[in-house]
Design a protein around this nucleic acid. Sequence first.
DNA 1: TTTTATTGTTTATTATAACATACAAATGTA
DNA 2: TACATTTGTATGTTATAATAAACAATAAAA
Lengths: 186, 186
Amino acid sequence: MEPIEEIIANNLVNLRKKRGLSLDKVADLTGVSKAMLAQIEKGKSSPTVTTLWKIANGLQVSFSVFMKEAVKPQIEKININQLPPVIDNNGNYLVYSIFPYHPEKKFEIFTVDLKPGYSHISEKHLGEEYILIKSGELTIDIHGKEFVLTTNETINFSSSAEHSYINSSKELVSFYIFIYYPDDIH
Amino acid sequence: MEPIEEIIANNLVNLRKKRGLSLDKVADLTGVSKAMLAQIEKGKSSPTVTTLWKIANGLQVSFSVFMKEAVKPQIEKININQLPPVIDNNGNYLVYSIFPYHPEKKFEIFTVDLKPGYSHISEKHLGEEYILIKSGELTIDIHGKEFVLTTNETINFSSSAEHSYINSSKELVSFYIFIYYPDDIH
DNA sequence: TTTTATTGTTTATTATAACATACAAATGTA
DNA sequence: TACATTTGTATGTTATAATAAACAATAAAA
């Protein structure tokens, strides 16, 4: 048995035990057979990369979790009206940070109100951006290319591209911005 | 061929070419056969974790080098109307997965339509949940405690608490569910 | 208490990873 | 130029990954 097999074995056993899952349940979640999971946990078999990928996907952990070596039950309800805007362009472009970035997390969420006829140029920044429309119609210019989003449309793009938000419509547009910061940014 | 196999194939080819190494040389350095290396590079075989480990060690790179997708500036616009619902309770509770979970990311995003008078009990699951209202009024029962959310309110809680979504109003409620999965292996 | 379901382990079978070897084409050397 | 070496590909064989099914022990349900 190679050292890497033992590392994976230990990590899989620990994760499964921590979650209180049976081999059967993990097999259901991952599409990998119960017998194979047992072999891996016992260090009796070295799984293919595909198999380990399936396990990671099924257990919704990063692949790297198996290569290496905290949860607070907390309910936080927020009333946006009581938040000060982090950006206020005379009431025409309002940004509220509803779930701020936290060093142990890799995302933050904003909500934005943009009045008709107004736009906002966003500076290039790290991360991936996901735009979720709440109401109205938003035009996004991403590096010179325009996309129009209505309430049944959503978009994601790399924030390192130049982009701006534009309200070309006759009504207020409200939307959520979710910014995800992947682990290693080279 | 699984996507992960193609990712590994590309990364191995690129690294080998960049270093100007032949398959033979890499086989010498890693202890993995030339034929197997060719299979991996062609995506014709999914190596075991041990084999990939040997390759990483022989080439003196981190294991994770082979897992990384090339960073492509990608813009993905999605029309929710064209997505099949992942859950459809006779049209009364519709769930659409707009940005599915990916093992190298730690979140997924859904949008939900819940008709008046209907509710949905969500099984306990991992992660933290963030609810962003699009339109209407949503009541969430979290482990027996009720919270009412309108369009200017948002909430987050641990998904490991029993929770259900309830539409007690007279109109459709639409909302986004953002589920974040922290790396937890403790 | 009896019956049923679940759990991890074991066994046998199938699929495929990984190898050794051969081969044709390309490259390098004398 | 002729010969030798290297390169990536193809082929067949061996080892092992991965599975389905069976099993015994334990836990849960009736």
